[in-house]
Design a protein around this nucleic acid. Structure first.
Lengths: 300, 300
DNA sequence: ATTACCCTTCGGAGTATCCGAAGGGTAATA
DNA sequence: TATTACCCTTCGGATACTCCGAAGGGTAAT
């Protein structure tokens, strides 16, 4: 399988232009090359992407999907190039903080806000990375500190727990599990599920564990946000799995029952991660000690 | 500029393996090819990505950024291929609904939940697309209906407003603007801003209008979620721009003042979009009439 | 000193890509 | 009905690219 970036660019040109001829011109290609390239793409993916008409081409549904993803991928690539250009300059007066998704959405906003308010001259650049990436970046000295999950091992680094981030099952109030406190994942895999859109890290993680157990979860609908997911559950559409912080935050607004998952992979902790305290710059020291100070979220 | 997908794959292999030699093996390439390819990448982007050491290579900060984006791009590509494979099968018994980001996060969860609860045999596949993409998909008959912004023109299609989605400025309670009801964008461009992470459609949109006005917004911090943004504003970190629904939803939990933006590009409406009512399948008709029924969100 | 890695450069071989030209089709216009 | 204007595909050759093996040079450990 190939599917080059050039393929994606060409395909967008063709769809936008409405014909292979015009699309080839936009892409600075000869008609023959565009046609040939298109044929190879369709052969590779095994689906027809364009319907050839007498007055140009029209996308099939698969073609429309390709258009969408092509735009996303090319935008991502543009972002990458832009970020790489930035390294010729270098940003000044800004603290760089690396955090995983959970920390970035659940933990950091609440903790960061008062600190930023008290330090009006310092700006913070939040970078979302996987815990693994963060650990490696800190290990080699390219970053000072970050917030990671304790699921990764970080040889030679300090890990200081600051919050829990357990995964919880949430169920409608009249569900058979509504009265239980804990449940095993195996016991709920056959329920109808409300999920997150495919491709999100958490959803992939959950699906993996279902697959390991030999099951595939049945999704009634997949939402884009945790809040949407919680609302679906509260209306009885199905059950869902969300981080503890999310479950707690919305259980007032949308009524549902929270049930702990027994599996060990559902028990996660967020940790500050750095090499050694004394090596840190004063600004980072101030920020970290604030983050680690009063762990309000970890109380259940 | 080239920067192939093969380049990204190779680079990941090299970084994971810790040396060009081992990385080349993982990528099924000869050492010479990998070295050469790497050289061309670094020449293209103009930044050193790897530090050559006697015992392998180590990433520079730019290299680490490339690693991160490479993973995102390749994951996106995998998602694309997976979705294209689905078209060989075809999903059954599922309603496909296309919606833009605002509808997907603000409008749909609340409206969709009771309908799904009342129709336990029907599943819904939500697809996030830009309003433009949705209109085109419906025009050519590849989709039945969607929820779009009224900013796009949809020749030959029915647009039925179901909710307002105006952009609002939110400011800390002691900000100079806290007592005003409306303000022009030009009047706030010099405030310190709390933004969304770069690359999000809304943030790009706002930046564009700032650029048109000849300004660049100064961001103290860029958050991943609207809720995080709101919390920052409530703590006095800066001002922010969010959809009306978001501003209303969180103004209880995080105290801030909401000020309307006067510009016309800040006044947006969400509309149901379809070709003709009689052509729609009964299931979609049921869903749309439910969505259009009681527009709870549009009341200010 | 030997061995084990590691990276770069070079010239040649193989192939993927591109292109122009030729071929065949439809639809609107004269 | 002939002409014009598009549109797409196929074919053979020229080009450019990528890949590879071999050679070269370096460091670190045994």
């Amino acid at each position: 399988m190939r599917l080059d970036l050039a393929d994606l660019r060409l395909f967008l040109c063709i769809v936008d232009a409405g014909s292979i001829t015009q699309g080839a011109i936009r892409a600075n290609l000869a008609l023959a090359s565009a046609s040939e390239r298109l044929r190879r793409i369709e052969a590779d993916v095994g689906v027809q992407l364009l319907e050839r008409h007498h007055r140009g081409v029209a996308t099939t549904e698969a073609g429309e999907a390709l258009v969408h993803h092509a735009r996303l991928i090319l935008r991502q690539q543009a972002r990458l190039l832009g970020e790489l250009q930035d390294f010729t300059l270098g940003t000044r007066g800004t603290i760089h903080v690396y955090a995983n998704t959970a920390a970035l959405t659940e933990f950091l906003p609440h903790k960061l806000a008062p600190w930023l308010a008290r330090h009006p001259l310092l700006n913070v650049d939040l970078k979302e990375r996987t815990s693994m990436e963060i650990v490696r970046t800190i290990s080699v000295g390219l970053a000072e500190a970050g917030v990671v999950s304790d699921a990764v091992d970080a040889p030679g680094l300090k890990l200081q727990p600051v919050a829990t981030d357990h995964l919880m099952l949430i169920v409608p109030t009249k569900n058979r599990l509504a009265q239980t406190r804990t449940v095993s994942f195996a016991n709920v895999m056959d329920e109808p599920f409300v999920g997150l859109e495919p491709g999100s890290a958490l959803q992939d993680h959950i699906n993996d564990h279902a697959r390991i157990a030999g099951h595939a979860l049945a999704f009634r609908v997949r939402m884009k946000t945790f809040e949407g997911l919680c609302e679906m559950v509260s209306c009885g559409v199905g059950v869902g799995i969300v981080p503890q912080g999310v479950a707690k935050r919305y259980r007032r607004r949308y009524s549902y029952q929270v049930v702990a998952l027994e599996e060990s992979w559902a028990r996660r902790r967020l940790c500050l991660c750095f090499r050694s305290w004394s090596e840190l710059s004063p600004a980072i020291q101030s920020l970290l000690s604030h983050l680690g100070g009063t762990p309000a979220i970890e109380a259940v």
